[in-house]
Design a protein around this nucleic acid. Structure first.
Length: 204
DNA sequence: AGGAAGATCTACT
DNA sequence: GTAGATCTTCCTA
């Protein structure tokens, strides 16, 4: 069953997930981020979507991780406090990650796809398309739609006043699918990609 | 300076 | 669905 539409007031009143949520194993955080909503505020306008696909990344034991070759200026958030944004560019697209790891460890979760909720018209304008289906079904597409750029790098998303937050939404029943991470040349043995089974906004 | 990169778009079969 | 061109940073030399 599809979710029903919600008003902006409902969404924006939900408290963001706290630091404890992110201070755990990246794969657990990646799995539990499914079904949560990303809310981006810009002035009076709200752009939001429900997370339907994620990937977990670790530190120096993960060859696909941006933190694999040690601490650099651009990957610094991965080594620091959980619950902050880690944003970097690949092939001319900004990718949205949330720092997630237990105390003293290194890791992050890549948000790979959203189901659009609020501000659909603005998101379509940002993307230059009119097809809902392709609006946010990929990591580079959703950042373009939500106007997420390097400006938000390092942002603390556990504060309700933050320009971008992640919050609990309705409890819905869904099956979680897993697979190996996409586009990764040297992957770990575990499957670290998570998605809501059957959701049409999962990337292909 | 040069190249790789956790992707996307378009144009096909 | 798959193939090839192309997008812009940051890293490494």
């Amino acid at each position: 069953m599809r979710h029903h539409r919600t008003g902006a007031s409902m969404v924006s009143n939900v408290a963001p997930l706290g630091r404890e949520f992110y201070a755990r194993d990246p794969s657990l955080v990646a799995m539990e981020l499914l079904g949560k909503i990303v809310v981006k505020r810009k002035g009076s306008e709200t752009l939001s979507g429900r997370i339907v696909e994620t990937e977990a990344y670790y530190g120096d034991r993960d060859p696909a991780s941006r933190a694999y070759r040690g601490r650099k200026n651009y990957n610094r958030p991965m080594f620091e406090e959980p619950g902050r944004l880690f944003i970097y560019m690949v092939h001319a697209h900004w990718l949205l990650n949330v720092v997630a790891h237990p105390e003293g460890e290194v890791g992050a979760v890549l948000i790979r796809a959203l189901e659009p909720l609020e501000g659909v018209e603005t998101m379509m304008r940002n993307r230059g398309i009119s097809n809902l289906r392709n609006l946010t079904d990929g990591p580079g597409k959703l950042t373009r739609a939500l106007e997420v750029t390097k400006e938000l790098h390092g942002l603390n998303i556990t504060s309700p006043r933050s320009e971008l937050t992640v919050s609990q939404w309705e409890d819905e029943h869904y099956e979680i699918g897993t697979s190996h991470r996409i586009g990764v040349t040297e992957d770990l043995p575990q499957e670290l990609r998570f998605f809501i089974e059957g959701n049409r906004f999962v990337s292909r």
